[in-house]
């Protein structure tokens, strides 16, 4: 299981990204995980909880956008429907070999950050 290392990287990168926004806490981090990223979303979420626990962002949620790979037919252009986690060898329409496209995402997309209100200066 390498999801723990990835969760640590996501948290570290997220903290860097909000550095210029002053003190505050991360509410949510949205990531894209592709079907061919070799990362299990449930394990990643589990690891994330362990990573943020005890940090300044202990309530931060991880939102995983699952990005399936697409199976395309280069002969007829059909995008083949398939059950999740299964693969088709031939195009259901023209029976030519299918190719796999996409699904290799492992990206941090955006962070919802709650910045502390700036202190009111006394006149």
């Amino acid at each position: 299981m390498h999801e723990m290392g990835i969760a640590i990287e996501i948290y570290r990168t997220s903290r860097e990204a909000v550095l210029g926004h002053g003190p505050g806490r991360i509410e949510r981090v949205r990531v894209a995980v592709g079907e061919l990223a070799a990362v299990e979303p449930d394990l990643l979420s589990f690891a994330w909880e362990a990573v943020v626990a005890g940090s300044a962002d202990s309530e931060a949620a991880l939102e995983v956008d699952w990005r399936p790979a697409r199976q395309l037919c280069s002969t007829c252009g059909e995008v083949a429907e398939r059950a999740s986690g299964s693969w088709l060898r031939l195009c259901p329409r023209c029976e030519q070999p299918l190719a796999v496209e996409g699904g290799d995402e492992l990206d941090i997309l955006e962070i919802v950050y709650e910045a502390e209100e700036p202190a009111v200066r006394e006149a």
Binding site: T13, S14, V18, V31, L106, D107, L109, I111, V112, Y113
Partner: peptide, 9 residues
């Protein structure tokens, strides 16, 4: 604030 990152994990 919504901070857009678009960085590989």
């Amino acid at each position: 604030t919504i901070v857009t990152v678009k960085r590989k994990a």
